[in-house]
């Protein structure tokens, strides 16, 4: 199938570049640093009625169920189990395995039930390897790997941002909508895919390079070594698998960034309108 070979060869060329772009974006963002805002209107909330004043990044203001923005051990455990072992991991393996079956990648595995089994199995192993590596490194870093949109990111200058958060007094600063917002959001989606934040009760932890994600992607790429045919166990092929794996993270980051628009569109599409009698 020539078109499949073409897809494979194109993907070989594009994927390393796709992996490089966010690295550049991320490095620039990290080098720029995130200054503490100094202007704008400040609201000091008194601690007399403390519930509901904490707005975690990406959270809804005045949510009474939120008492802490940490990425807790329980959350990390749940994320590990779901992305590595249980049905979410299985579904991913089945779907991506089906995609690989269609383009017959790797070519050594035939387009048979056996080949499909190999493809699903290797993806399941890769997910388990990646999830486990992320869990272990994330635990060491005590980071918060949840994706955030540009507006919700505690380090950008848009919307309400926490300036300080001590002894029950939460100080917020409001920023107006910045200019060239679409490009900033696109750039942020790239940056967010390669950075994490230090887990913090106020959700305002320092931005860090996503080492856990990096290690996870590498672990996932090399986790398939035992399964893949010998010809696929090269650094180039492993890099390609890593780039693909990173691609899913990037997709998740873009989804987080633009999901409000997506949801608004879907809502409009499915809201019944009043019929005229």
């Amino acid at each position: 199938m020539s078109w499949m070979n073409r897809i494979r060869s194109v993907s070989r060329g594009i994927l390393p570049i796709a992996a490089l772009v966010p690295c550049v974006f991320g490095c620039v963002a990290l080098l720029r640093g995130q200054a503490v805002p100094t202007s704008g209107s400040q609201n000091r909330y008194s601690p007399s009625s403390p519930t509901g004043e904490l707005i975690c990044p990406g959270g809804f203001p005045t949510d009474l169920t939120v008492t802490n923005c940490d990425f807790t051990a329980h959350m990390r455990m749940q994320q590990w189990v779901t992305v590595s072992f249980t049905d979410e991991a299985m579904l991913g393996a089945i779907l991506y395995g089906a995609g690989a079956q269609i383009i017959q990648s790797p070519s050594e595995w035939g387009r048979t039930w056996g080949g499909y089994g190999e493809r699903v199995g290797v993806r399941y192993t890769q997910a388990a390897a990646r999830g486990t590596a992320e869990f272990l490194v994330g635990n060491l870093m005590q980071d918060d790997p949840r994706h955030l949109s540009y507006k919700d990111d505690p380090h950008t200058h848009w919307g309400s941002k926490i300036v300080s958060c001590n002894s029950g007094i939460i100080e917020l600063q409001n920023y107006p909508t910045p200019t060239k917002i679409v490009w900033k959001r696109v750039g942020h989606a790239f940056v967010d895919s390669i950075t994490v934040r230090k887990s913090n009760p106020c959700g305002s932890g320092k931005q860090l390079p996503a080492i856990d994600r990096l290690v996870g992607v590498a672990a996932g790429a090399y986790g398939g070594y035992a399964w893949y045919p010998r010809a696929e166990n090269t650094i180039a092929s492993a890099s390609q698998r890593a780039a693909l794996s990173y691609g899913s993270t990037l997709l998740g980051s873009f989804y987080t960034e633009f999901s409000p628009e997506l949801m608004t569109g879907l809502t409009k599409l499915f809201t019944p309108r009043k019929k005229q009698q």
Binding site: T86, D87, M90, W113, G114, Y116, G117, G121, T125, A128
Partner: peptide
């Protein structure tokens, strides 16, 4: 036809099914 699939997927689905049976309900 199913045999190769089962052969290939022998390990992880078994773990997953055990997990499912033990801890999902």
């Amino acid at each position: 036809m199913i045999q190769p699939v089962l052969k290939t997927l022998h390990c992880f689905p078994a773990i997953a099914l055990t997990l499912f049976a033990c801890g999902c309900h």
